Computed example of a mutant assay.
Amino acid sequence: MQTWTEDGEEIPLTGGDVTEGLVRVGDTVRRPPGERVEMVRDLLRHLESVGFDGAPRFLGIDSAGREVLSYIEGEVAGRPQPAWMADEERMISVARLVRAYHDAVEGFGIPTDLPPPFEPPGLPELDDPLELVGHQDITPDNVVFRDGRAYALIDFDFARPTSKARELVNLMLWWAPFGDDADLDPAQRGLDRPRRCRLIADAYGLSLPDRHRLMDLASVLNERGWHTMKYRAETLGGGWQRMWSEGLPDTIKARQTWLDENAAKITAALLS
């Protein structure tokens, strides 16, 4: 593994919710190691080996013990979100990028020696067999655009064994998006969410069985998310506690109500 020792101006990279201390140095990003660190490094090496350009390259460790990743030039939504977050073609390009990532990661397999996820005991069960290592954090902050199209996924801290359907729930959560208008960024209010879910599913090529079960899975994942975020806020503090204290529990509970009220319409759109 290469050790980077050169110095340079450190430009802080902001916009994330949890990871602190991200900086840009030249054409690299320096960041503290995250969860499942060895798996993520192996994953990025695999993506490089199969020629997938839509992810950063893992380059080594610097003299401060930080991971060194390639910096990907492009446009990221940031906060507040730009008006183009409502653009359907941009959204469709994200779904196509996720499909390309899934195709590229297929040969990586599912690691069996991972530590258990940092989750509270007693979570609602998931009837959802594992299929691949997904990104699982496809937020607007983690997608780089070039020329109005999604070019790369960044920040693989939450990458983990999952299913295609679970990954699509995460994608729709942020890009359809799921939730009451009052809880969304102004750029994403008033959108036709059933239509956008259908466009995402079609662009990705989601299977018919996964379309049938997607909203039931979304409901269970949302409930699990509330308990997991509470557990992490209480045990890890930091950004987790900040988000929790800023109203995240109410947002997740309001989203559950929204999912219950809109699940049938979204499923009908997915199957139409």
Results as ranks from 00 to 15, higher is better:
S245E: 14
A201G: 11
G247I: 14
Q256Y: 09
W258C: 01
L217F: 11
G179Q: 03
W226D: 06
Y204D: 03
L259Y: 02
A203M: 09
V220T: 13
D192Y: 00
A201K: 10
R224Q: 09
D202T: 15
A182H: 14
G179A: 02
I252H: 02
Q256D: 09
D216P: 08
P186E: 12
P194Y: 00
E223W: 08
N222L: 03
M243K: 13
V169S: 02
M215V: 10
G225H: 13
Y231G: 00
S207H: 12
W258D: 06
A218D: 10
R255L: 01
L171W: 02
L208M: 14
I252D: 00
A176T: 10
D260H: 13
W258Q: 06
R166C: 04
W226H: 12
W240A: 00
W244I: 01
R189W: 05
D185W: 06
D180V: 13
S219H: 15
D185Q: 15
G238P: 05
R255D: 01
W258I: 03
L221I: 14
L236V: 08
N170T: 13
D250M: 08
S245L: 11
D210M: 07
P177V: 04
A187T: 11
K164G: 10
T257D: 08
L236T: 08
L248T: 08
D260C: 13
E234C: 02
H212A: 14
Q188T: 13
F178I: 05
L208V: 15
A159M: 04
E167T: 12
L168D: 07
G238M: 01
L191I: 04
V169R: 08
W226I: 11
T228R: 11
H212G: 11
L208S: 15
A254P: 10
V220D: 03
L236P: 02
V220N: 07
Q188V: 14
H212M: 14
R193L: 00
R193C: 00
A176Y: 01
C197A: 10
D250G: 11
L214R: 10
R213N: 12
H212S: 11
D185G: 09
T235A: 00
G205D: 14
L221Y: 10
M172R: 09
R224Y: 03
M243I: 07
W226Y: 13
H227K: 13
K164Y: 10
R189Y: 09
D183I: 06
K230A: 05
T235G: 00
C197W: 01
D210P: 07
L184A: 07
R242I: 14
D202G: 12
W240I: 01
P249Q: 04
S219V: 12
R242G: 09
R232K: 09
M172W: 03
G225Y: 05
L184C: 11
M172S: 07
P249A: 04
R193Y: 00
R196M: 03
N170R: 12
W175Y: 15
I200S: 04
D180A: 14
E167F: 05
G237C: 02
